[in-house]
Design a protein around this nucleic acid. Sequence first.
DNA 1: CACAAATATGATTCAAACTAATAATATTTA
DNA 2: TAAATATTATTAGTTTGAATCATATTTGTG
Lengths: 308, 308
Amino acid sequence: MQSPLELRHLRTLLALADTGSVSRAAQRVSLTQSALSHQLKALEDHYGTALFERKTLPLKLTAAGKRLISLAETVLPAVGAAERDLARIAFGEAGQLRIAVECHTCFDWLMPAMDCYRERWPEVELDIVSGFHADPIGLLHEDRADLAIVSERDEAEAVRYFPLFSYEVVALLAHGHPLAAKPYLSAEDFAAETLISYPVPDDMLDLIRQVLRPAGIQPKRRTSELTIAILQLVASRRGIAALPQWAVQPYLDRGYVEARPITTDRLYAQLYAATLPTRAGLPYVEDFVDVMRETSQLNLPGIVLLAE
Amino acid sequence: MQSPLELRHLRTLLALADTGSVSRAAQRVSLTQSALSHQLKALEDHYGTALFERKTLPLKLTAAGKRLISLAETVLPAVGAAERDLARIAFGEAGQLRIAVECHTCFDWLMPAMDCYRERWPEVELDIVSGFHADPIGLLHEDRADLAIVSERDEAEAVRYFPLFSYEVVALLAHGHPLAAKPYLSAEDFAAETLISYPVPDDMLDLIRQVLRPAGIQPKRRTSELTIAILQLVASRRGIAALPQWAVQPYLDRGYVEARPITTDRLYAQLYAATLPTRAGLPYVEDFVDVMRETSQLNLPGIVLLAE
DNA sequence: CACAAATATGATTCAAACTAATAATATTTA
DNA sequence: TAAATATTATTAGTTTGAATCATATTTGTG
């Protein structure tokens, strides 16, 4: 009842303002909804004033709440910067960070993340290992990469996985395509179609790995390097595709093609960052994971951050 | 052992840098030395680096420690400002603060405090109730003052006391004065002397209240309004005086007069701020108390902040 | 070298902060 | 309009970790 303001409260408030709800803010800061409800009530008691109106969704901050948010917005970045400096002081200068990527769409969010990261760690040498690799984890062991972005955890591998986020993969159809009449597509629906995808092995397509192979279905394949080219092929009825919903949302909004969920349960893909255990503890590596999560959350609509 | 940085840590570090020792920092933040030792060790473990060297006194901050201090110096004032804004929002705009003073030397530290306070609470009307009053607490009850600076707590009064600080009162003698041969002065030493003081009732002189009256001694009195004038009289052998050690330190340094402790136990005076209970909870009142304590601590050598 | 001052350590205590379960309230959907 | 779904508040119980006390160790000083 008499406890003073702490950084934890500011983090909570920022999450609250970002998410617009106590429950989602709780997820964001890895606490229960109840914990935040208590924490916020204690804060309001402490200052003798309400910080936000709960009746509305998204909730509205009061003047007092806004003032604390503005405090949080100046204080928390300053704290973050100081902590990175401390990490530099404690661990000595930072090394290199070579990133191996197996998915084409990853570039869409990886670039903004790298831009943000370069500002924080200017002395870290940031590279993308060129080309696409069937086995990115192998590159870690060969010391040709320091961090790999993968879509499956292989617990047999001696690497440390950092969860990134999850997103839905949707099927893309031309307007008036017969399958567009269905509310969702099942594995069988793909059997007679041409699947248009990036030029990668079967293993690396979530649709094939999670849906088609288990059902024993092997559709014809046609490939293209570029998302826009794939969409163009779909629109001109050369086949159907399956892509991240966040990657195609702008095209859907403009009515370029149509989207349908895949299976009744929908198809979700996950992304993880993998590093050798020896590098997993390095502050500049951990911070890159944080940056990837933050920038993606900010830029990609509809994604859900994965919990540890 | 994995606890993140909190404002409490920054407050501790700032106290540490200010005082130059763990024990004194502990006093400053009202905790035990042990608590701070634990707290600092936890911080150092968390960042994996030492924050200061303990071997030396005053202790020396490491680069990491300095970085955190600089963080604290930007963050804590911002937090303070935000909290005052919240208080304004919660309690509405602030009123007036009329201060009644009974001691002459109080002005020396009150003026800097008021200057500092005016910046923080520009909308509070700040006044000193003119003249000196035998009964400042009475002014509170008559609603002619909102806050009184007093040197004794009268528990019978229905007021709330805020402890300020304690300081030593020393006897002042001309060079070569016979009493200067003694290591300290006792009550009897004053019997044959002329006591030079401010023109206030006996009650309000700590020397008389605490030492001379209990011993039944009533020396001749001679008065002056100004500290420098009192010192001049002492130096020219018109009598002896008793003044706060912090008020005369500069004159002692220059060898203008000599100082001796009063009684074997030395003579200490305390100061308190008194308000009506109704006003004691107002943020702008409580903050004035904080400012008085802070600025005094900063400006007056040798004082000790009183604990609640 | 011994002593005082300052800091570190370990055991214990206790309150703050969290979780879980559930109730109350609002919002959306049928 | 009712049922289903989300969201927040409340109550009670548990955990955790920060502070204290007591004591040991270290460091500076006469």
